[in-house]
Design a protein around this nucleic acid. Structure first.
Ligand SMILES: [Mn+2]
Ligand SMILES: [Mn+2]
Ligand SMILES: [Mn+2]
Ligand SMILES: [Mn+2]
Lengths: 219, 219
DNA sequence: ATTATTATTTCGATTAATCTAAATATTTTA
DNA sequence: TAAAATATTTAGATTAATCGAAATAATAAT
């Protein structure tokens, strides 16, 4: 059984390695975990003994298959709780992480089974991030920024890049959130501004920066 | 900030002292916490330094005002989660404690505020135990076993003594749960068996033992 | 009032998680 | 390629939580 701390490390390693694609170095992990590099060295040794990571000193750490499954399990629980907090308890986006970071460590398969059912088996969390299934399978849909899609595209908002308060407030104001249907109606060649229609109702112009940071689903 | 373990100890001290009425001795606490008495001595010292308990060695431990408030806070959270698990996730009684023991330690005033609201500000948990308010106030209603109430009494089931699986299964079978309305229609003098009407529908006879273990509200 | 029994505390260790400072390895730069 | 800079690990402590064994205090029995 992994401790809360070990689970948090695994999750960080998973994310920093981009799902296991590249090794993670000690300082990056120390920064992510807000601990001293020395503490990271210690913890990596522990995780290595538990076969959760592959590790050769000075070479960085790679998550193992076993570790990846565990990490995805925690990520699943994290995201399911987020859905609950937003859908049922009306949490704001910026209040989510602090609580989900705690709730994700609750040990009870039954709880998550029932919670998942209660929420209608959601596939994406409130940020548009996909929820892994019980086996750690991620059905990652491609997400493309508006800026990279052709005029005429009509699709669903599945995520945003970054999460600055001012950007989220802007989205709120113009009426865009996860699940909103957008259509790209025009693109200004001179600066990349885009006209979009929101939910088939009103049409607004968004800046190139905004177009870069709103992600639409491929289908 | 108290650790999970400290919170669990405080709760145990609160319960074993019957809400602070009497001191708790080391062995009783060790048994309750399933630890060695030596560990209890250590922990009591820690809690005493934090002014959560009053302690003189060999004299037992008394919960302090500060400690009582903290304990009631944890108890509140424990019971609110139980309501959630039963009402929203359809947990059985015997599956509750393991999960609630974990969830009760989540640190987030906002979460409990919202959860309380989501559940409609429940006053009692699924076992009929009262939920303390945010200030630790307990509006404890008297609970009387059927065996001690006069014939003619009509009232609501607010709790049961004990929680053996077979007893709970029996209650389930005859259709009695927290909130069920019962009327005492007759009592056999020779053995104390009682005839009760359930929800104004069917009338059944319960044994003296059962009559001793079903608790009705005073009002 | 001793003695025996029981309860409690202290002592000394262990494990998990953390830190600072020092040592060592790797990488970069000149 | 040797020195300088950076990254990482090791060494040695600390704190929380736990334990078994030994010492001590309190209580009960003779
Ligand atoms: Mn070390
Ligand atoms: Mn976490
Ligand atoms: Mn000690
Ligand atoms: Mn607990």
């Amino acid at each position: 059984m992994l401790s809360f701390v070990e689970e948090n490390y695994l999750k960080a390693i998973y994310h920093l390695s981009e799902a296991g694609k590249r090794p993670v170095n000690t300082n990056a992990l120390a920064e992510e975990m807000k601990t001293a590099p020395a503490s990271v060295s210690d913890m990596i040794k522990r995780l290595s003994e538990k076969r959760m990571v592959d590790y050769q000193k000075y070479r960085g750490v790679n998550i193992s298959e076993k570790g990846k499954i565990k990490a995805l399990h925690v990520i699943r629980q994290h995201r399911i709780w987020k859905v609950f907090l937003v859908e049922k308890l009306n949490f704001q986006w910026d209040q989510l992480d602090e609580v989900a970071e705690q709730l994700e460590h609750i040990k009870s398969p039954l709880l998550f089974q029932r919670l998942d059912e209660f929420l209608g088996f959601p596939k994406f969390d409130p940020h548009g991030d996909p929820i892994p299934d019980e086996n750690g399978q991620l059905i990652e849909k491609r997400k493309d920024p508006i800026a990279q899609l052709p005029v005429g595209t009509a699709s669903i908002v599945v995520g945003v890049n970054g999460s600055s308060a001012s950007f989220l407030k802007y989205l709120d104001k113009v009426g865009i959130s996860i699940g909103t249907r957008l259509q790209i109606v025009d693109r200004m060649e001179f600066d990349g501004s885009v006209d979009i229609t929101i939910d088939g109702k009103k049409t607004i112009t968004i800046s190139p920066t905004v177009a870069e940071n709103i992600l639409l689903s491929e289908a």
